[in-house]
Design a binder for these strands. Structure first.
Lengths: 336, 336
DNA sequence: TTGTATGCGTTATCAT
DNA sequence: ATGATAACGCATACAA
């Protein structure tokens, strides 16, 4: 591995000159600069990240806190594509990413300690229990943080626009003439609450009454629970004509229950998901759903985090709302 | 951030003593050692990874080469759970992981250069076009490498046991009395070839004849192609009673075609997938498939790589075969 | 058992 | 325009 010193020897200059030339300082002669650059390239030189980090106190490394007890983090398309686009954007901006965890080797450490150990320039937090003490400690620290789909007072956040998304989705269903709409929603989280509130708001705006029994508590990404709630809804004396699910995967449970009862989706019963994962468009009928802008969110998170790092003066905890996109499949039939 | 120097001051000893005490050298007095350790803990000390790396030439960082043009890498459960378990095991062994890519900032670099820049102690390669020049360059380098589901002459490999997996799966189907078995297989890769060969072998062993027209070239994770091939198979004068798909996602295409034709899966037609992703067990009927040991593979890859790094003397390019597990759903009906 | 001194590869300050 | 030198935090050979 070529070092700056070797380049200096080869070019007959000092290491200081090489360093400056390579970092584009203007006070180096054009000729020497060119000579240095070309021989550096010829020798396959790359700066030693550790040495540079030691000196500059900047690692060009972003921490990613992306943990899930159920190991569902990476296996949910919404999160994995978010991560993928975060990584891509981070790389474009010159940063690598490192996963943060709560122990390394046998040494237990908090998230914050892990970040400090690796000298992360900043951290993105997503897909985690945001109420943990360790998360809070990290958020309160001096390290720049960006959160996704959660708001902390102290740091910027990238948020999926669940309110508008829900409005678009339910609006479409209402346009199709449905007036008996049930909603199997996810666990009680900020996301669920926003969607639920938006659901109520638009229904009221359009003078559609939602009987309390149409609202069922489900679990994100758990088809079996959704199947059970679907069965309960269908057994009602006055069953709904359309059922909303917490997400596309949960819809699978409903779909199974429909088929078991011989109900044809879109004519006998309508349904909609949320997320817009690729599976939803593989099914027949294609699912009507709301595709969350996970790619845009990942990229926005990376850009926003790097801004916090590189321009700390103008930094303040703003919120970026990323819109989703209504995906009209064939799972919501028309009643008009 | 506390440094070794501050601890030294506080304890009234030299930095060398602190360093030794913290690294468990035996030539430090028990009392001083205890004093140093406790004050270090009290001060929230963690060694500066960059400084340590600079000195020891070891970063405790593993590179992960995990790229896919179609961005399907992270979104396929097989790969994402492989990565997740690799990460978990690496952390247990005291390593963080860094994604390797082919450019960072505006600076284009090869995979090898990126690894060197970050001073990765080793690299895991999976889910990538293994035929690329840059991959080859990396494999030939001095950096320890482990590959997953691909064999290079020069480095150890972790392999899913596709031959035994296929034997188990097809064996089960034959046990159910099927004699007309079609196989929509994936693109022409080493994995496909192994599975195809195993398919032929076991059929021959059990005296089952496979007409060439029962073998169809599909595409991994592409339901639409599978749907088309399924239609072609069903339109045959002498159609199969059971169809194998390249993977569970591809099966969705077949499933759609069955339903379109009003064929009841398991009684009118049988089908099997491969991979054993969680979706396959959410569908009704549950899919009969072969669950690949992705968790075991990820962990094995991490352990194997760390062994290459920490014990280079005994290192040689061996292969670790990880078995899968037959998952018997309801999609293969009995003909006997 | 403990301390001194040096160097890892880089950047940055200050001379020249 | 270029160079000598110190410093970043740590580990270690060697001296005491």
């Amino acid at each position: 591995m070529a070092t700056i010193k070797e380049i200096a020897q080869k070019c007959g200059v000092s290491t200081a000159t090489v360093s400056k030339a390579l970092n584009g300082y203007s006070d180096i002669g054009v000729e020497t600069s060119n000579l240095i650059r070309s021989t550096a390239a010829k020798m396959g030189y790359f700066p030693n990240a550790a040495a540079r980090a030691l000196k500059t106190n900047r690692t060009h490394n972003l921490g990613v806190l992306f943990i899930d007890k159920t190991r569902s983090g990476l296996t949910h398309e919404y999160f994995s594509s978010l991560l993928e686009s975060f990584k891509t954007q981070a790389e474009k901006l010159g940063y690598d990413i490192t996963f943060i965890s709560s122990n390394i080797g046998n040494v237990p450490m908090t998230y914050l300690e892990h970040c400090r150990y690796r000298r992360c320039d900043g951290v993105m937090i997503a897909c985690i229990d945001f109420n943990g003490r360790q998360v809070f400690e990290l958020v309160q620290s001096e390290i720049p943080v960006v959160t996704v789909d959660h708001v902390f007072d102290a740091c910027p956040a990238i948020l999926s626009d669940n309110v508008q998304g829900m409005r678009d989705l339910v609006g479409h269903i209402l346009d199709k003439g449905h007036e008996k709409i049930a909603y199997v929603h996810g666990e009680d989280t900020a996301v669920s609450r926003k969607r639920l509130a938006a659901f109520h708001t638009i229904c009221r705006e359009r003078s559609v009454i939602v009987p309390p029994v149409y609202l069922r508590q489900g679990i994100f990404h758990d088809p079996e629970t959704s199947r059970r709630e679907t069965a309960a809804l269908l057994d009602l004396p006055n069953p709904p004509t359309c059922i909303l699910y917490p997400d596309d995967i949960s819809y699978i449970g409903g779909m199974n229950e429909f088929e078991r009862r011989g109900l044809k989706i879109s004519t006998d019963i309508s349904a909609a998901g949320y997320d817009g994962v690729s599976l939803s468009q593989m099914l027949r009928p294609r699912l009507t759903t709301l595709r969350q802008g996970s790619l845009a969110m990942g990229a926005a998170a990376a850009s926003r985090l790097v801004r916090s790092i590189e321009d700390p003066h103008t930094d303040f905890p703003d919120h970026t709302l990323i819109p989703g996109e209504l995906v009209i499949g064939q799972s919501v039939g028309s009643l008009i």
